[in-house]
Computed example of a mutant assay.
Amino acid sequence: MIAVSPPTPFTPAQIRERVEQILTAGALPPIVQAGHPVLRQHAAAFDGQISDTELRQLILLMQNVMHEAPGVGLAAPQIGIPLQLAVLEDQFDVDPESAAMRHRKPLDFLAILNPRYAPLGTETAAFFEGCLSLSGLQAVVVRHKRVLLQFEAPDGRGTEQEFEGWQARIVQHETDHVQGTLYVDLAEMRSLSSNAEYAANWAEPGIGKARAGLGFLP
């Protein structure tokens, strides 16, 4: 059972102030790490706390932070802003075998506000994943293979879109962030590995070798 995250204590004025501080800092903000309270709070739904111009600037900033990291997604709480906003993009060049097994296809840049997802069907997939807010670690997470994402676009349009494979994994991971959930809450903890140990022992398209060697998902 995943704990229910408490709502952020930030007021709309405090959220706006935090955004303004980050936008005027003149440098990319750091990615906050596990243990920071903002990662364990249910972020505030976006309802106009910042202006359209500030929202566009924040989305661009988050895209730059994601690229710099580098990563395939970033949620506003990961830079200390308790707002239901995330950016997604996956243009990494991966080997064909891994791409095929993980159903990983390029994902064009997407900014989502107030996201919610629901599974489509009952199929699941288990793969290693990491997080920019848990630097240096990876673990296997079982996730829905296909999901329907409901969200608001930056222009305010209500939108829904289906995702599958690795794109669905990214969608679930980032949506969980704005609800105060980290991937380790859902992970097979016996699979938890440092990046170095993963690279040395378990770096393959699937998880069969790691499952046998670390004793999870019998």
Rank of each mutant, 00 (worst) to 15 (best):
L58V: 13
P119S: 09
A76K: 13
I170S: 08
A86H: 04
L148Q: 15
G130V: 05
S133L: 08
R143V: 06
F92D: 15
T175M: 02
V87G: 02
P154I: 05
R104Q: 14
Q161D: 00
D93I: 01
F128S: 03
Q172Y: 01
H103D: 15
H103P: 00
E160V: 11
L88W: 07
H173C: 02
G71W: 06
E162I: 14
D155L: 06
P77S: 07
D108E: 15
R116V: 12
A111I: 14
D155Y: 06
P106H: 01
R104S: 13
I170G: 06
A111T: 11
Q63E: 08
G80A: 07
G121Y: 00
F109W: 13
V147H: 04
Q150R: 14
M101H: 12
G165W: 09
H144F: 01
F92C: 02
V72C: 14
F128V: 03
R169I: 13
L110P: 13
F151S: 03
M101D: 13
V147L: 03
E174S: 04
L110T: 05
A99K: 13
N114Y: 06
T122E: 10
Q63T: 05
F128N: 01
R104E: 13
A111N: 08
A139E: 14
D155S: 04
V87D: 01
L132T: 05
S135D: 15
W166M: 03
Q138G: 15
E162A: 14
L110S: 08
P115M: 12
F127D: 12
E97N: 03
P70D: 10
N114K: 04
V142P: 04
P154N: 05
F92W: 12
K145G: 02
R102P: 00
F128P: 00
R157F: 02
F151L: 03
T122I: 04
Q161T: 11
G130Q: 06
E123W: 06
L61A: 01
S135N: 14
N64C: 05
T124N: 09
V141Q: 09
Q161P: 03
E164T: 04
A100W: 04
E160W: 09
A69Q: 12
L88C: 13
R143S: 06
V65E: 09
L149P: 07
I79P: 07
R146G: 02
K145T: 11
Q84C: 09
L83S: 07
L132N: 01
L74S: 03
D90Y: 02
D155G: 00
E123K: 15
L107D: 06
A125F: 11
E97F: 12
V147E: 09
G130R: 00
P70C: 02
A139I: 10
T159P: 00
E160Y: 08
A69T: 11
M62V: 15
M66D: 10
L134I: 08
A69C: 14
L58S: 03
A99N: 04
N64G: 00
T122C: 04
A139T: 09
G156S: 07
Y117I: 08
V94N: 09
G73N: 03
G130Y: 08
L60H: 11
A125G: 08
N64E: 15
L148P: 12
P70Y: 05
Q172P: 02
N114D: 11
A139V: 11
G158Y: 05
L107G: 02
A118W: 01
E89P: 10
G73E: 06
G121E: 01
